[in-house]
């Protein structure tokens, strides 16, 4: 009895949070651009995949997707590599200015993105990086990195120093100890850091809007927004696009869910 009650509660909340999602699905399947429809039916006799074919065949959606994928992948890879190496150095080595560096990394996180818009734009145009992916990538990386570095440092702090020492006695140089022992056992932290980098660039709109002006270079959020720009918003297309955009994120989350709750260091040292 108690069990069924809790199941019921969970189901209720699931429906509650899934409802907007399902609504978007139903819109994307309607042929008639009927945003205002009152019907709650997910499917009806007129449901079609027309919006999706339209999206891929008659809009630059695929192009935008490749753009987004490119930018996000570069940001993720560089973010993970830089965060892992610098986080490790900060966690393990003492050097001058370490405290100040850590604090200033933290400080950068205190400014809201909107406040940085103008300086970003000025810097990018001075560097002739407007309308270039590189400009976007630099900004995405620099905004995501401080958090990623802190996250990796925090993780490495929990890894016992004896592991590298054992590796050294086993014949590794400092760098080998890092990439043969420490990195492989850090997969959970690396994956989460990577996910954070990916998410922060995949769905970002504001910075992309000031950096990229050529529709050819649009990333997905910009592209989606452009459906809205004309007098009559194509809600069906918009909904279909929104669904496709969210798919990679959902897939990523499912793929890495096992890492989100894992304690891989368990068992390496006493206690």
């Amino acid at each position: 009895m108690k069990k069924s009650l809790s199941w019921f509660t969970i189901l209720l909340f699931c429906l509650f949070s899934l409802f907007p999602m399902l609504y978007v699905v139903s819109i994307s399947l309607r042929g008639d651009n009927a945003f205002g429809s009152r019907s709650l039916a997910l499917f009806n006799s007129q449901s079609t995949l027309k919006n999706f074919s339209e999206l891929f065949l008659h809009t630059p959606f695929l192009k935008w997707m490749m753009n987004s994928l490119y930018v996000s992948t570069v940001v993720t890879l560089s973010g993970v590599i830089l965060a892992a190496t610098s986080g490790y150095a900060i966690s393990r080595y003492e050097f001058k200015g370490k405290k100040i560096m850590l604090m200033s990394l933290l400080t950068t996180q205190m400014f809201p993105a909107t406040m940085l818009m103008l300086p970003f734009f000025i810097v990018l145009s001075k560097l002739h990086l407007i309308n270039k992916f590189l400009g976007l990538i630099i900004i995405y990386s620099s905004t995501a990195l401080p958090f990623c570095i802190w996250q990796m440092k925090g993780y490495f702090d929990t890894v016992p120093k004896e592991l590298e020492e054992a590796a050294k006695l086993d014949g590794c140089s400092s760098f080998q100890a890092f990439y043969k022992i420490i990195l492989p056992m850090s997969t959970p932290a690396l994956v989460i850091t990577g996910l954070f980098s990916f998410m922060s660039s995949w769905s970002e709109y504001l910075v992309a809007a000031i950096t990229l002006q050529d529709p050819e270079l649009y990333t997905l959020p910009l592209g989606l927004k452009s459906f809205q720009a004309s007098l009559a918003t194509q809600w069906g297309l918009y909904a279909a696009g929104a669904l496709v955009v969210s798919i990679p994120v959902v897939v990523l989350f499912i793929m890495i869910s096992k890492y989100l709750v894992s304690g891989l260091t368990v068992g390496s040292v006493k206690g």
């Binding site: 054992a166 006695l169 022992i181 492989p184 056992m185 040292v269 006493k270 206690g271």
Partner: peptide, 20 residues
């Protein structure tokens, strides 16, 4: 000489096994 070039093995007080 660096530890990796000393050819000394050690059993740590805290095991220090590679967890992965």
């Amino acid at each position: 000489v660096e530890p990796q070039n000393r050819d000394i093995a050690m059993v740590f007080q805290s095991y220090a096994l590679y967890p992965h």
